[in-house]
């Protein structure tokens, strides 16, 4: 198991180098070049030529890429070209990542247990009204994108009822967090409820559940001791995916609610072609994704003895 972890960790730098390569390559050949974006309205060919020379933008792709990677190794992610002109990207990320993490931590902390509980209820009452209503709402949560749900909720709670703020961020434990956290959590709830339900129904027909019943265990004991743990094992994969996609997950929500997190930063940067930010956010997202998956694999080992001992 330990050698497996080490192997996975050794892979990580290569993975990140590949991610940097892809995003850098897209940025290099994509529309808009740094000096154009930087100068914006003040563009004149002479200044542009000077900047290109200074920044080494005339050098070949391979050389530029190598320099970029070298900078990344020393945690120098460059500077913003547009809205936050002159500010180091590293500092922007450091300021915004905590907000996104808080937002996601809250959504996961609420959404995962609630989803598992609802899924377990649905499976226990398979085919009855409890099951049907839970399925209905989870499908609804999944089907309505946050792009629609966000404005609708804002309209109802902020504009009409005037009980919640329109946007902004006063920290996790403030009224401003209620709507964005709810929207993010509802997606998590829906995913986990449906998966828990499906897994439990699967496990309920397993032979070892019949064995458990033949021992005279009550239905609650069968559920809690034999069904639930087995049904939760596949959820680890989904949790890994959810954890891994926190940056993408908040892109729209943070933008709609004006929350100064990574998602909003990425959204602005993409619109403005602020390549240093785009590349940094993408690489960071990949890094988080890789770590989350590694964590998921390790967690498998904890809850599944078959993996722990292999």
């Amino acid at each position: 198991m330990l050698s497996y972890i080490v192997r996975r960790l050794l892979w990580l730098p290569f993975l990140l180098a590949i991610m940097i390569f892809i995003t850098f390559w897209l940025g290099f050949y994509g529309p808009g070049s740094p000096e154009v974006v930087l100068l914006g309205q003040r563009y004149d060919p002479e200044t542009a030529a000077v900047i290109k020379e200074q920044w080494g933008l005339n050098e070949p792709f391979a050389l530029q890429y190598v320099k970029y990677v070298r900078n990344y190794v020393t945690l120098n992610f460059g500077e913003s070209l547009t809205k936050y002109q002159g500010q180091p990207v590293a500092r922007l990320l450091a300021r915004r990542l905590p907000v996104t993490m808080e937002l996601n931590a809250a959504a996961i902390a609420l959404g995962v247990p609630l989803g598992i509980i609802l899924g377990a209820i649905a499976a226990t009452y398979h085919g009855r009204w409890q099951d049907r209503s839970i399925i209905f709402f989870t499908v609804l949560f999944r089907a309505v994108p946050s792009l629609v749900a966000g404005p609708v909720l804002l309209f109802v709670f902020a504009k009409q009822l005037k009980i919640l703020p329109v946007g902004g961020w006063d920290g996790l434990f403030s009224a401003s967090a209620i709507l964005p956290v709810s929207i993010l959590a509802s997606g998590v709830v829906a995913g986990f409820a449906r998966q828990t339900r499906a897994n439990m129904l699967d496990v309920l027909s397993a032979d070892y559940v019949r064995t458990a019943r033949s021992k005279g265990l009550s239905e609650q004991m069968v559920m809690s001791r034999h069904v639930l743990q087995n049904a939760l094992i596949p959820l680890v994969t989904i949790l890994g995916l959810v954890l891994g996609s926190i940056v993408e997950g908040t892109l729209i929500t943070e933008t709609i609610f004006g929350i100064p997190g990574m998602g909003q930063l990425a959204f602005e940067a993409i619109g403005a072609r602020d390549y240093p930010i785009i590349i940094a956010v993408t690489v960071l997202a990949a890094f988080i994704f890789a770590l989350a998956n590694l964590w998921a694999d390790l967690f498998y080992g904890i809850i599944d003895p078959r993996i722990r001992q292999s």
Binding site: D207, Y208, T211, A212, Q229, D304, R306
Partner: peptide, 9 residues
């Protein structure tokens, strides 16, 4: 092979 719970001792 399937009548024992895989996650319990």
């Amino acid at each position: 092979m399937t009548s024992l719970n895989p996650v319990l001792t």
